Simulated scan of single mutants.
Amino acid sequence: MDNIAGKKSGLGWVVQISVIALVLLWLFPTVGLLVSSFRTADQISESGWWRALFPTQQNMTLRAADPDDEGAQALVGDLYVIEGNLFEEDTEATISVWGTSSRAIDAYKAGETAEMNDGEIITVQENGDYRWTSPEELSGRGQRVFVTATTPAEFTLSNYQRVLFSDDSTDSMANAFFNTLTVTIPATIIPIVIAAFAAYALAWMDFPGRAILIAMVVGLLVVPLQLALIPLLRLHLGIGIGKGYLGVWLAHTGFGLPLAIYLLRNYMVGLPKDIIENARVDGATDFQIFTKIILPLSFPALASFAIFQFLWTWNDLLVAKVFLIDATGETTVMTNQIVELLGTRGGNWEILATAAFVSIAVPLLVFFMMQKYLVRGLLAGSVK
């Protein structure tokens, strides 16, 4: 009686917990990337993204104004005085302890005075205001001050402004973003169009060798694309296509066709046969049946493959490296731009986080808009 139809399995809770665990494993890094993309470099280096809403305590090395700067110091009575604020920008940070040596960064509390060589004295307040005095005229660089400051939670759009609108090509993702769209949209549409015609022929048209073609399509599903990269590139160079958008479109089309034909054919062959036969009896041609009956009914399968192809093409680096990337970098895509940022901006985590989230934002949007068709397309032909 344990297998009565309709009775829930005792292991259902295991499946639910597993699904929740997988969702959380995917969600936490994505949320962390999003939060980090709005934080400053200092905040990222001092605390994790989960503390973004709380004040952060940071150790900073700040410097007073240089005495040689015009108007920096003034003679007040018998003392030369330099006054100002240690923080370069307006901030709500508060200093708890400070010091004039890296060996004792907590030697003084905010508001206390430190005596240095040659009768120099410096006082640092909680808000960063300082007063540096000396009986002799000051010269050289400004006094270094090591502080421990508590900074409030801060979010900024400057990372996105730098990544999307920077004039520096090493930082900007704008050009790479549009290059990626230029590659991805045609590389998604072209194989869908070709595969739809081929899938209809393999599903509903009788011709010699159809079974062999279906077997070849299934066999191509397991062929690694790496095996065809160099031969295909040599073919492109031989016929004059070279490296460019046309070459990468054709490459993505060729690598995506086996899965597209297999997926669409499985869906189309499961459509009601009576509809096709009645249309033929009414005098409809195969093209009319395909465009007016099959395509509208196959939209879930078409959307399912579109999601797969779009995500794969958008996140692709290997095919773009082989068939597209040139020496000038004018056609570089986002995945390659992020690799370049890792090399030139490896310490700028705020820039890397922002660039990475910009890269995944569009795939996330496409997935959530069309995910309801994904399962329907994947289940195509699974039941009769």
Results as ranks from 00 to 15, higher is better:
Leu297Ile: 08
Thr335Arg: 07
Val281Glu: 13
Ile276Val: 15
Ser298Glu: 05
Thr253Ser: 11
Thr354Ala: 15
Leu295Val: 15
Tyr262Pro: 02
Leu317Lys: 10
Ala353Gln: 14
Phe323Gly: 08
Asp274His: 06
Ile351Phe: 04
Glu330Tyr: 06
Trp349Arg: 02
Ala306Met: 07
Thr313Asp: 03
Thr285Leu: 01
Leu263Val: 13
Leu295Phe: 02
Val333Asn: 01
Asn315Asp: 11
Glu350Arg: 02
Lys292Ala: 13
Pro272Ser: 05
Asn336Met: 11
Ala260Val: 15
Trp314Tyr: 05
Thr285Phe: 02
Val333Leu: 00
Leu318Asp: 01
Leu324Tyr: 12
Lys243Gln: 13
Asn336Thr: 11
Ile325Thr: 10
Thr331Leu: 12
Gly254Lys: 02
Gly254Ala: 11
Thr335Lys: 07
Gln288Met: 12
Trp349Phe: 13
Ala320Arg: 05
Phe255Ala: 05
Leu295Trp: 05
Ala251Phe: 09
Ala279Phe: 04
Leu341Asn: 09
Trp249His: 11
Met334Asp: 05
Thr253Cys: 12
Gly283His: 05
Val269Asn: 10
Val248Gln: 06
Asp286Tyr: 07
Val319Cys: 04
Ser304Asp: 04
Tyr267Met: 12
Thr344Asp: 10
Phe299Cys: 11
Ser304Arg: 06
Gly270Cys: 07
Phe287Trp: 14
Ala301Trp: 01
Asp286Ala: 09
Arg280Trp: 08
Thr328Arg: 13
Gly329Ile: 08
Thr328His: 06
Pro296Ile: 04
Ala284Cys: 14
Ile261Gln: 07
Gly283Trp: 01
Gly343His: 10
Thr332Pro: 08
Phe310Trp: 15
Ala327Thr: 14
Lys292Pro: 05
Ile293Lys: 03
Glu340Cys: 04
Glu350Gln: 11
Lys321Thr: 09
Lys243Gly: 08
Ile275Tyr: 12
Gln337Met: 10
Asn315His: 14
Lys243Asn: 09
Met268Asn: 08
Leu246Asn: 07
Ala327Gly: 05
Gln337Leu: 12
Glu330Cys: 03
Leu250Lys: 01
Pro272Phe: 01
Ile351Glu: 03
Gly270Asp: 15
Tyr262Arg: 00
Asp286Ile: 00
Thr344His: 14
Gly244Ile: 09
Leu302Ile: 15
Thr328Gly: 12
Asn315Val: 07
Lys273Ala: 14
Trp249Gln: 08
Leu341Met: 15
Trp312Ile: 06
Ala353Lys: 10
Leu246Tyr: 05
Pro272Lys: 02
Phe290Glu: 15
Leu271Gly: 10
Gly346Gln: 09
Leu257Asn: 00
Thr285Gly: 15
Gln309Cys: 11
Leu246Lys: 08
Gly343Val: 03
Pro272Met: 08
Ile289Gly: 14
Tyr262Leu: 00
Asp274Gln: 12
Val322Glu: 04
Glu277Tyr: 10
Arg265Asp: 04
Ala306Cys: 03
Ile338Gln: 03
Phe299Pro: 08
Ile307Trp: 07
Ile307Glu: 02
Ala306Ile: 07
Ile276Cys: 03
Arg280Glu: 13
Gly329Trp: 04
Ala306Leu: 02
Gln288Lys: 14
Trp349Ser: 05
Gln337Ser: 09
Leu352Glu: 01
Tyr267Ile: 13
Leu264His: 00
Lys321His: 07
Ile338Ala: 01
Val322Gly: 06
Arg265Trp: 02
Phe287Gln: 11
Gly270Thr: 12
